Computed example of a mutant assay.
Amino acid sequence: MSIESDTPVKDRTYDLVSVLESSLRNAWTMEAYIADAEREGDEELAEWFRKIQHNSFKAGEQGKQLLRERLGRSAQG
């Protein structure tokens, strides 16, 4: 099954970098949402935002590792 990509560049590295950037930006954005929830005394919502932030950081770290590996392979070949 093939899914048509709407990315402007048909390139797996571009896609990887885009998702990496999005994940890390989302983790950074969660800081403001956590602060907002805490300021309003909504610890339940703040904790939910922390979980999302953790997952975004994790995805970002995995994406950085994938990118390092791929750049290393392309430099060798």
Rank of each mutant, 00 (worst) to 15 (best):
R39T: 09
E31H: 02
N55Y: 00
I34V: 15
V17F: 05
G63C: 09
S2Y: 05
P8R: 09
K10E: 04
W48M: 11
S74R: 13
R25K: 08
N26E: 13
D36L: 10
G63K: 03
D15L: 15
E61R: 01
A32L: 14
D15S: 08
W48H: 07
A46F: 07
A27P: 06
L20G: 12
G77C: 10
W48G: 05
Y33S: 15
K10H: 02
L20F: 10
T7I: 05
L45M: 08
Q76V: 09
D15H: 07
S56G: 06
W28I: 12
I52D: 03
G77Y: 05
L67C: 02
E69N: 05
A46M: 09
L20S: 13
L45W: 02
I3P: 00
R50G: 01
S23N: 09
R70V: 06
D42K: 14
R25W: 14
W28S: 11
L66M: 02
S5M: 01
S18A: 12
A59E: 00
L71M: 15
E40D: 15
P8V: 11
N55M: 09
Q76H: 02
M30P: 02
A46K: 01
S22V: 05
G72F: 04
L67A: 10
Q76W: 01
E43M: 11
Q62H: 03
Y14I: 11
D11C: 11
A27K: 14
M30C: 12
V17I: 15
E40N: 14
L24N: 11
Y14C: 08
D15V: 14
L20Q: 13
E61A: 13
T29G: 06
T7P: 04
S23Y: 01
E40M: 15
I3L: 09
S74W: 05
D42H: 07
R50C: 00
Q62P: 04
R68N: 04
H54K: 10
G77E: 13
H54A: 13
R73P: 04
G41W: 03
D6H: 02
E44R: 05
R12H: 10
S56C: 09
R73L: 15
R12K: 05
T29M: 07
L24C: 15
W48E: 10
I3H: 05
E31S: 11
D11G: 00
S2H: 01
L66P: 02
L67D: 03
L66H: 00
E40Y: 09
N26Q: 12
G77L: 06
E47Y: 00
D42M: 07
E21S: 13
E40H: 10
A59Q: 06
E69V: 14
